[in-house]
Amino acid sequence: MRRRDLLASSAVIALIGCAAQTPESGLQFFTPEEAARVTAIANRLIPADELGPGAGEVGAARFIDRALAGAYGTSRDLYMRPPFLPGVPSQGAQSPLTPAVRYRVGLAALDAHCRAAFAGRGFVDLSGQEQDRVLADLEQGRIAITGGGRAFFDLVLRDTVAGFFADPQYGGNQGMAGWRLIGFPGARYDYRDVVARHGEPYHLPPVALA
């Protein structure tokens, strides 16, 4: 194992160690501060508008929190044996950093960046326009974060979208807001009566599993 990987692994233990949450927060991985930052980010990635609520308002932080506390957060089901060597893009991601570590490190680094750039204000204290600018910088790789700023942005974007469109039992998409936005009927499971009714609107409201 290379030194950088070793450091990253040690970081996992050190960082996960401080994740114990108070029962009243309902959080399983995030600190309340981290959850607030994720909510704020998600509300910029998929903002509230006349079409409906933002992703943060309908549970993005709760969705990601639960995912990070489980198999996804620890990369439990992935091949995580060393050595971790740099490859070419066609070989897929090669990193010992789990999503849980990426969020812990990434959210802290992003906030530190904001406090340095905006006179002590953290991400949640910024205006919507300022937040968008920070996120665009992150997306373009202009903010340095362990594991890559652009990779962290892509991770948060992917997870936010997943939460917005996943079944509400996972914590996001509350009120089936994501499904209502686009017209997806969820878990209806039976369209025999409408399959051949071409071009007609589907009128039944969405249903969720839980």
Partner: peptide
């Protein structure tokens, strides 16, 4: 699950194959 079984991959013989981690 890749944790249980996966393959390594490269495009050509001159490269070092790396595991398909996901």
């Amino acid at each position: 699950k890749p944790a249980e079984n996966t393959i390594t991959f490269r495009n050509k013989t001159s490269q070092t194959a790396l595991p398909v981690r996901a």
